[in-house]
Amino acid sequence: MQTIPNTHTPEPVAHFHRSRFDAWSFLFTGVTGACTYLIIAILLLILGNIVLNGYSHFSWRFLTGGADRGMYDPETAGVLPMIVGTASRIILMTIFVIPVGVITALYMTEYAHSTSLGIRIIRGAVANLAGVPSIVFGLFGWGFFLNFIGTHMDQLLHPEAAKAVWGKPALIWASLTLAVMTLPVVIVATEEALKSIPHGLREASLALGATKLQTVLRIVLPQAMPGILTGGILAISRAAGEVAPILFTGAVSFYPDLPKALTDPFMDLGYHVFILSTQSPNIEQTRPLLYATVMALLLLTFLLNVMAILVRAQMRRKLRALQ
């Protein structure tokens, strides 16, 4: 057998150490890193500015005071009606959106064939709904809930009434409009939670002679609860700060009473920020009031966001432990 002479000697490895300063790598990492930290810096700047200017005026009196003695006077004005208004519309919205969103997600993951036309249309509609501008929801709420449903309800229920009862801006119409807007949030979150449940659990339940509905109610839904909760909180935190959809459907600039009925208009934290920023007779004088109101709104939405993040993290940890 012929041997091949080994003529190739590997060149000695010069050094494993960084041979030269890699300028491109440095630049690229530097620029993208700068983008990241700039965004965070802006965020911190906004938050810092609001907290620094707002906290001195942020007091118990401010949180529990009303607006009946002049809403632009920093000495007397409080945000209780706005907090109650915002809370009511959010709670009502949750009552409307959670069942519909959860049922839709259940249908899509548990009942329908994953490739069926119905599912694809629902999916398209959900994606579309998620992208509709919030002001269009406002127009829709005004045109459909208030002017169509509300007016027809008035004709049916209160034909003699001189003033519209249902056919005017009201808590219920604002809540329903927001429910339509946040429907995709709840559907997507619930769907994700349902999909993460092992298929074996459903099979086990069905093989024991449980009906589909029993399986869904007793095995699937309890497992999906954290996901549904996250979806609900995300929807709430999205809706809490939204102003455009309620501009025409329920929020008013001044209504010092707390809303008592579904047909009452209401004051709203977010809308109040808008009013204080744009309608104030003396912006310098109302500045502390404005900052404190913004702080109240931010506290509300951030607390909700943090809650959602915590619940989600908890859920992920639990799921990881299961698998």
């Binding site: 919030s134 977010g270 808008f274 939405t301």
Partner: peptide
């Protein structure tokens, strides 16, 4: 999560910040 927190800022707050500061 820090960048996503920016999404949690209501647009009315961004509007207020832009207008005043």
């Amino acid at each position: 999560p820090a960048i996503e927190l920016l999404a949690g800022l209501p647009s009315v707050v961004l509007g207020f910040f832009a207008m005043l500061v």
